[in-house]
Design a binder for these strands. Sequence first.
DNA 1: CAGAAATTGTTGCGCTCGCAACAAATATAA
DNA 2: TTATATTTGTTGCGAGCGCAACAATTTCTG
Lengths: 156, 156
Amino acid sequence: MVFKNGSSNQVISPQQQYRMIHDIYVLLQDGDSRVLRKFDLTSSQYGLLMLLDLEKGQRLVDLSERLMLARSTITRIVDQLEKRDFVRRVPDPEDRRAQRVILTELGAERREEAHVAHEESLQRRLSMLSDDERRQLSGLLSKMRLALHADLSSIS
Amino acid sequence: MVFKNGSSNQVISPQQQYRMIHDIYVLLQDGDSRVLRKFDLTSSQYGLLMLLDLEKGQRLVDLSERLMLARSTITRIVDQLEKRDFVRRVPDPEDRRAQRVILTELGAERREEAHVAHEESLQRRLSMLSDDERRQLSGLLSKMRLALHADLSSIS
DNA sequence: CAGAAATTGTTGCGCTCGCAACAAATATAA
DNA sequence: TTATATTTGTTGCGAGCGCAACAATTTCTG
């Protein structure tokens, strides 16, 4: 597959813009799973672990919102991580419906190992942009995310 | 979920950059499937249809590469579309292993309907960026895509 | 307060997708 | 040419995910 040179900077159609984001997402995701597979973690499992702490923990519904995954999916990811003793469910003292997910010591260790490798990989794969370009990108993406989220909320 | 204001333009970490792209992809994808559901099409089915024509057609392996989906997945999407008479498999005259997928008249009609709606939706959802910002974004994303693709190729 | 509505987490079910293995055909090597 | 390797498309299988329905709790309303 051959991509056009990035320096042309012509106006692109929404379709092209969309395709580009799609491709980048897939490419990032692919490299990601490669790295995390060494630690027997999926991207979602890793993403969930990264939101946890050793004390207060997080409710499943909050994890669901932050990861943009269905509540049922979170239930299953927590099941998997709990089986491996990376995570524990503890009852929420303030709400008897809720559970709080906390990291175990083992989970914290494994997460740290994966985190180092993931960080290093991302650093390498995203090094094509200068600090200045990264700043630009940051601004543009934030703007998009905000607007897309608002648009979505206005519909559902 | 609350996102930070996009105008701060500070340097962001690779992790944040990654999360932003992830979120935008999910948000775009979500709006997309909403629109396409009205036409009983998934994003992948739609994406595949958009690559076809009425004459020469496309080989499945080429569709696989362009959509970045596994060959087996393409087989199944073509199966689905063929059942609905949107698409036909015809033998490749130059290679007896290959099949060429072509649009039917019906498929072309349905695709056009979906295309109009999809275009309109994308236009609306991506209208938060000015032409100038779009140009910037285009350049940055192309650069990322190129580099990520190169990185991936160097590994596998 | 009582009843209705909303929220939290779980389960069943179905869909999408990738991986590995395969047969048929083609391309490459000796 | 013959033998080997590669490519094309398909299938079986399993993983990941969302939706709808549910019970247990909490919150809202009258």
